[in-house]
Design a binder for these strands. Structure first.
Length: 538
RNA sequence: GGCCCCAUCGUCUAAUGGUUAGGACGUCGGCUUUUCAAGCCGAAAACCGGGGUUCGACUCCCCGUGGGGCUACCA
């Protein structure tokens, strides 16, 4: 943090401070500042910390030789000191959150509260995929963010399958989604709910809307009336307030002419009935949000808080689609990525904690994840980075665990020894077998390698190595290394001139785990047999 | 077309009016070395453009430009 004039944000645990106060405050916080807000909020106070139960931002503008921050701070915060203040944290104010930005304004201070950013207030969230395909990484990330919010706040996670489009929804896809979530470790407190199953209630609401005059029938379908004037403001924790003028929104259809309810209505009603507090979903839903909010309003209810996540793009910068090999969760799993790495990577795709930490355990994630640090711009899925991260996770796994995972992945047993030798060379579970297969299935067939290292000279050196290995006792990595290095010295050769022929003889290729370790694992008999075979073939 | 969102190295991001614009992946170079990796060290690499506001703008405002989304009796 920069020194000197800096805005201060202080973390304090204000027990019982009502978040409701916030709404009333933030709008006039702008220029009038503190006094006003304080009066409004009672004994308020402020601020911040990614983990504060109630997050209040003390914002001020130091630009104008105003009384210093400290002065302001002392005056304001003092009242709360008696309670519980850990005011040692300097954080910059303002924010990507428009609510804060608004308050920032100029002049002196504003006390703005950020209701839903409070990671600790129980949040009820939902993940609502439509079962029209596999769960791809975008959906997985949305599910993850919701889950982190629920778990991190002690709230609830609802899984709702949006299957009101019977033509495109399939049971098989539902199963794929459940399987993917399960693999990721994302569980839920309610569900899976079938949106189609709520049809009776949806129909009831449609009827209610019609009777109250908010909706009318048009060519058999039912539409919601959208006033010509006015506007609907969507409160979005990531994007700030987004205003939609009603004149740009036509009356929209909420029920098909066969009477069946449509998406916008079903979503609004289900979220309402489930008492969802935060709707966290992809940005592609942003434009529909005012419609859902209007339905809620017509019903006499306040909308939930929204948070629209940036979309994920393919490597070419375009929207992620099947064409980009739109990695589904299953594909990642089958490609040998482990759940921890996928979760960690996904968490970082659109969110960042600070400029230091890259690896996050699930627990850290639930603890640290907040919507205010979610970025606003689309991100590109970078498999290279996932690979790197996956490798890092594999390397830090205890040997037995890695072995167990690789055995499960390959369907083979007795891999412990080979895993030990290969663990530092693989980035995915799938990388193991190509590297280690020769231990179990015999040398790989790589003509070029044989040609290059088992030619005349290579063959002669191989014979020397063979003779030396035959006498090694016991047959261990250390003794093997000693004897082969002796050969190198005796021949006056370069190490690789002896080692590579041996490597190719036992593995069939030029790439393998450490040669001495590999020989030991193979055992003397098998090693010599392979070397003999190589000599004969050459 | 209309409405809405977005814009920092190739990629993911940090930065919250004052930094030599930081980190990570990838790339390149070096070390290590029995191959390949891993590891360690180092390098190149970014504020879309133009106007404002300000003593000072990557940060705030406006306009462009570019990208994306929505505009269904799909979700």
């Amino acid at each position: 943090m920069r020194q000197g004039r800096q805005r201060l944000l202080f973390e304090l645990l204000v027990e019982g401070a009502g978040v409701d106060q916030i709404d009333r405050m933030d709008h006039h916080g702008v220029d009038r500042g503190v006094g006003h807000l304080l009066a409004e909020g009672g004994e308020i106070l402020f601020v911040k910390g990614r983990r504060a139960p109630h997050t209040w931002a003390l914002v001020e503008d130091l630009d104008r030789g105003r009384p210093g921050v400290d002065a302001a701070f002392d005056g304001l915060v003092e009242p709360a000191r008696g309670r519980n203040v850990c005011a040692d944290q300097h954080v910059k104010a303002d924010s990507r959150c428009a609510r804060r930005r608004t308050a920032k304004a100029s002049g002196f201070a504003g006390c703005v509260a950020l209701p839903a950013m409070t990671g600790r207030q129980p949040m009820t969230v939902r993940f609502a995929p439509s079962p029209t395909g596999l769960l791809h990484i975008g959906g997985a990330r949305t599910a993850l963010y919701n889950w982190l919010l629920a778990r991190g706040s002690g709230g609830r996670m609802i899984l709702r399958i949006e299957d009101t489009d019977k033509v495109r929804s399939t049971k098989e896809n539902v199963d794929h989604i459940l399987e993917a979530l399960d693999w990721l470790g994302i569980d839920y407190d309610h569900g899976p709910l079938s949106q189609a199953g709520h049809q009776p209630r949806h129909l009831e609401v449609i009827e209610q809307l019609r009777q109250s005059g908010h909706a009318y029938e048009f060519e058999g379908s039912t539409r919601l009336k959208v006033p010509d004037e006015g506007e609907t403001v969507v409160r979005d924790l990531i994007r700030g307030d987004v205003t939609f003028k009603h004149e740009a929104i036509d009356d929209f259809t909420i029920a098909r002419s066969d009477g069946s309810p449509l998406y916008n209505l079903a979503v609004a009603v289900d979220d309402l009935d489930s008492e969802v507090t935060h709707v966290v979903r992809g940005e592609d839903h942003l434009s529909n949000t005012p419609r859902q909010a209007m339905i809620l309003e017509a019903l006499g209810h306040a909308p939930p808080v929204y948070a629209h996540l940036p979309l994920l793009h393919g490597p070419d910068g375009k929207k992620l689609s099947k064409r980009h090999g739109a990695a589904s969760v299953q594909e990642l799993r089958d490609a040998g990525y482990v759940r921890e790495a996928v979760v960690n990577y996904l968490a970082l795709l659109g969110w960042g904690y600070d400029d230091k930490q890259t690896f996050f355990s699930i627990d850290e994630l639930t603890d640290l994840f907040t919507l205010d640090r979610v970025s606003k711009s689309a991100a590109v899925f970078d498999e290279q980075k996932l690979r790197w991260m996956n490798g890092a996770y594999l390397r830090q796994l205890p040997a037995e665990q890695l072995t167990a995972r690789i055995e499960a992945f390959t369907g083979r047993e007795g891999l412990a020894g080979a895993v030990e030798l290969c663990r530092e060379k693989i980035q995915t579970l799938a990388d193991f077998w190509p590297l280690a297969a020769f231990f179990f299935d015999g040398p790989t067939d790589d003509p070029k390698a044989r040609e290059k290292f088992l030619d005349g000279e290579g063959r002669l050196r191989l014979q020397d190595a063979r003779a030396a290995l035959a006498g090694v006792e016991p047959f261990t990595t250390e003794t093997i290394e000693d004897s082969l290095r002796e050969v190198v010295e005796r021949l006056g050769a370069k190490p690789k001139q002896v080692f590579q022929p041996v490597r190719v003889a036992i593995s069939g290729t030029t790439i393998s785990p450490g040669i001495f370790e590999s020989l030991e694992l193979l055992g003397r008999d098998e090693s010599l047999a392979r070397i003999d075979a190589a000599i004969d073939a050459a």
